[in-house]
Simulated scan of single mutants.
Amino acid sequence: MKSVFILFVFFATAINLLAQQKTYNIVTYTAPNGWTEKAGKGNISYSNIDGGTWAQIVIYKSMASSGNIAADFDKDWNELVAANKTISLPEKTSPKTTEGWMVISGSGTWSYNGAKVTSQLTVYSNGQVSISVLCNSTNKSFLNDYQALLSSMVLNAEKAQLGSDTKNKAEVDGLPAAIHDNSIVGIWIVNQAESNGFINGHLMYTGGYMRKEYQFNDDGTYVFSEKNWLAVKETIYFVYETGTWVMNGNQLTITPKKGEAGWWLKDKVTNDVNKWGIFQEASNYKLQTATYMLEIKIDPNYSNSIILNSKKATQRDGGQLNNPPYRFVYVQRKETLIDNPPGFKL
């Protein structure tokens, strides 16, 4: 009877493990036991809630690789992690090779509903395709399941369907290549908080910020604004630009008509980040027409985002300190974050 019982336990365990074997896109893996599975657009995710703690693991659909694992990681970190939240810079591992794939993992912390969240992103690239796995968690205990999933992964690059996922296509997460004009109507922002290092593992924020914002109107006009209030600076930098936009397939062309930029003093009495001082001087701001290859990311958990792919750095979006390709990510928002200086008129 004891031998029969042991044999039964063996087969029951084997059946349970087999039942959790999953294949998504180019990866076969063992799904975390007891986690809730959800199929999304361009990803599959697993979630677990244990009392007041929670975690989410997301496997994203493979994409065309840039040919450089570090560039692939930076792109996915900016688009999948940092674009939707204020998060610390990632602490990254050195590139490693396993089964013909290069691997980089990085982690950062941020706050959500008062809880400290750790985001750990692992990116695999063979120079042709790349695939990313993300874990958001509020407790280190969940990372064991994340590491177990990574250890179980088997990647098959031959299964990659690159036709609709290369950077030169606009089809992202199931969206058609011909993007409708009204897809980008609304407000899209970049909101970066100024920080001043870590204390006891916690990122220390100064209260300062760097914000950029597009407002695309359904009449084909737009407003672009930028406001930088930094604790390390004595002045506020402000940009305001208007013009027209037009979509041609998946190409977005922005043509400015008017624009001004300059520096304002801070409110010296309160040093309030929401208050303006007096105008100091104008900036040498150049109007620049630019055409972008547009991508749209649908994220029901946080916010949708648009990615403006450009062959060169732009006056509005930046990129002057980086190397191409340039990918500028803006997150959707219902209301503006940037206020104009008192009495400002363009």
Rank of each mutant, 00 (worst) to 15 (best):
R327K: 12
E79H: 09
V269K: 14
S305M: 04
T253P: 02
S111N: 13
G67K: 08
D339M: 15
R211F: 09
L134T: 00
S283D: 15
A231H: 14
S111P: 05
L155M: 04
N156V: 06
N68R: 04
D173I: 06
I296K: 01
L17G: 11
T221I: 03
S183D: 02
L17F: 12
K297D: 15
N217P: 05
L287Q: 00
Q21W: 15
G174R: 08
M204L: 12
H202W: 15
D219T: 02
H180T: 10
A177V: 13
K75S: 10
A115P: 01
T244E: 09
E194Y: 00
P90H: 07
Q320A: 13
Y112C: 08
S65V: 09
S62C: 12
V81N: 01
F73A: 01
Y46T: 03
Q147F: 13
N126I: 05
K116V: 04
L17A: 13
S132D: 02
N182V: 04
S88T: 08
L17D: 09
Q161H: 11
W188A: 00
A19H: 15
K159F: 11
T291L: 03
Q192N: 12
G67H: 07
K116T: 08
Q215Y: 14
H180W: 07
G67Y: 08
K227N: 07
N78Y: 10
K61M: 10
N33Q: 14
E99G: 06
K257F: 10
Y209M: 06
F10N: 05
Y205N: 10
A157P: 10
N322V: 08
E241I: 03
F198Y: 12
I26H: 04
T253L: 03
F328V: 02
W77P: 03
G42R: 00
I278P: 14
L18M: 15
N33F: 09
I199L: 15
T118F: 03
G42V: 02
N248K: 10
A290P: 04
I296P: 00
F73C: 01
S45D: 03
E37W: 07
P32D: 01
Y124P: 02
R316K: 14
K286G: 06
F10Y: 12
F142L: 14
Y29V: 01
D181A: 10
N68C: 11
K258R: 06
N48Q: 11
Q161N: 15
N182G: 07
E37K: 06
N136K: 05
V123H: 00
V329S: 02
G163S: 07
I199D: 15
M247D: 00
K75F: 15
I278N: 15
S3Q: 09
E260Q: 12
P90A: 05
D219F: 03
Y112L: 11
D72C: 04
I296Y: 00
T13Y: 03
N228H: 12
P90T: 05
